[in-house]
Amino acid sequence: MATNNKETKASSNRKKANFSDIARLAGVSESTVNRVLNEIGSVSESSRRRVVNAAKQLDVKRILPDVEHQLIHIDVLISHVSTPIVKRYLEEINRILHFIDKRVRIHRISLPDAEEKVIDALIHSRHKRNAIIVVARDTPLIRSHLNAMIDQGTVVITLMSEFPELTTSLYSGIDNYQAGKTAGWFIQRLSPRPGRVLKLLCNKHFGTHSERSDGFSQQMLTASSFEEVEIITDNSSQACYEIVVNELKKGELVGIYNSGDGSDGILKALKEFDRVSSVTWVGHEMYDCHISCLKEGAMDLIIDQDPDTQIITAIRHALNGCGLGDISPNSGPVEFRLFCPTNHHSRPYLRS
């Protein structure tokens, strides 16, 4: 009986082992034990094994992590953090984090739109990256660093803009060239008469807008009765207002295509000249201001690049590239969506 009592007591002691006991036996800190057992952070493979083995020796009564599978680290590197669509990207990432396998760690890296900041983030990392999702400009230096990462086995996915000269990258954005062509087609079809069409281009050096611009111009060449007027703007409402006012004064303006922001200024100019319903206007993204423009009858079409689906597709590409996806996502671009005054919704663009 005495022996049985001792065994019962010893068993009881093992059941009560806490993080401090495990840390002492494994030779690590309690915070490391917490990260390993709760799978909430980056821990080296050796520390992970020591913690799990110590927990087994102490007969800890809980489901222990699988030491045969290392954590998968996916970086999401995003510049242009002040724009609404990038904020929407970040919201969607936060939403789907709750559904990701515990072995997967998604690290969000928000940066200003500066090449040196992006390159610094690409070079320096506190963990070994398995995959990286990138929203940045396609510059020779950034491209060179991404190609080096691809050569080292990192899965690279570009978002919003495709980097055509990367060796083996994946893309989870829309076909911006086709989006631009679509805008041109609708302006040609919806305009009540031939005339001048204003193309407001916010930044031709950013691949997204350059591709949209090329697609739009290609479509406009199919109808000689429309004259395209391209003007570069700084994307501000005031700049767009002044440009549209100047073009309206010249007369015969039948269409406006805006590839970026500044729509408040466009609307203000159209109202001042009482041209809200007589100029065909096509723009991008279901921003709150654009939904209002649709309701007022000022905008005729919004081309939305479906940011939620882009993020989901990018993460699926990353997981599949790391060997965790059962079904690979489609290899082609994400389909964009079209909204007009009869099928728009009223949900706010940003959830918070």
Rank of each mutant, 00 (worst) to 15 (best):
Asp151His: 08
Gly184Glu: 03
Leu221Phe: 10
Pro194Gly: 06
Ile231Asn: 01
Ser144Val: 04
Ala223Cys: 11
Ser225Phe: 10
Met160Asn: 15
Gly180Glu: 06
Ser172Arg: 02
Asn147Glu: 11
Ile132Gly: 03
Ile150Gln: 05
Leu170Cys: 00
Lys199Trp: 12
Asp234Ala: 04
Ile132Cys: 01
Leu190Asp: 12
Arg108Gly: 07
Gly207Tyr: 14
Arg196Phe: 04
Glu211Leu: 11
Glu211His: 09
Ile150Ala: 03
Asn203His: 05
Glu92Val: 15
Ile119Thr: 02
Val197Ile: 09
Ile93Trp: 08
Ala183Phe: 00
Asn130Ala: 07
Pro112Met: 09
Ile119Tyr: 03
Thr168Tyr: 12
His127Pro: 07
Glu162Met: 09
Gln219His: 07
Phe226Ala: 00
Thr208Trp: 08
Ala148His: 14
Lys128Met: 12
Ala183Tyr: 00
Arg196Trp: 05
Arg95Ser: 15
Phe206His: 10
Ala136Arg: 06
Lys204Arg: 14
Leu146Gln: 01
Asn130Gly: 12
Arg193Lys: 11
Cys202Tyr: 05
Met149Tyr: 05
Ile157Lys: 01
Leu146Val: 01
Ala121Ile: 07
Glu116Pro: 04
Leu141His: 13
Pro112Cys: 08
Phe206Tyr: 14
Val118Arg: 04
Thr208Met: 11
Leu97Arg: 14
Met220Leu: 05
Ser161Val: 07
